[in-house]
């Protein structure tokens, strides 16, 4: 099962503990988390279900390449980090 970790900054607004979930892609993994925690979805994805402009997702240290469909593969041992980009701050 993949481990999904959310940025601490997000925890200020919505509960999002580290979780271990099944799923073969970023989309599949995040869908499991969001189904259990619906409010979290809108903080990470926009209205069209794509990654928010200034959000980043890393799989085992590599940024995902498909920000629209979130189709990057996730392995059972992967660590998925949902982070803020440095852009978009102030």
């Amino acid at each position: 099962m993949a481990t999904v970790v959310f940025t601490q900054n997000l925890r200020r607004h919505v509960e999002c503990p580290t979780e271990t979930v099944d799923g073969a892609t970023v989309r599949a993994v995040l869908d499991v988390v969001f189904t259990a925690n619906p409010r979290l979805r809108g903080y990470v994805l926009d209205d069209q279900g794509t990654l928010r402009h200034h959000m980043m997702v890393f799989i085992d240290g590599e940024p995902v390449s498909d920000r629209r469909n979130l189709s990057d593969p996730v392995r059972a041992t992967s660590e998925v980090y949902v982070m803020q980009a440095l852009s978009g701050g102030c």
């Binding site: 997000l10 607004h13 990470v44 209205d47 928010r52 200034h54 959000m55 701050g89």
Partner: peptide, 29 residues
Amino acid sequence: HGHFGVKLHRSDDRGTTWTEIAVPTYPKQ
């Protein structure tokens, strides 16, 4: 929230407590 998008909150007691409510979202493009 910038990174985390637009949110909406409501208070029914003049700001003593706030509840996050739904934010308007667009249908599938």
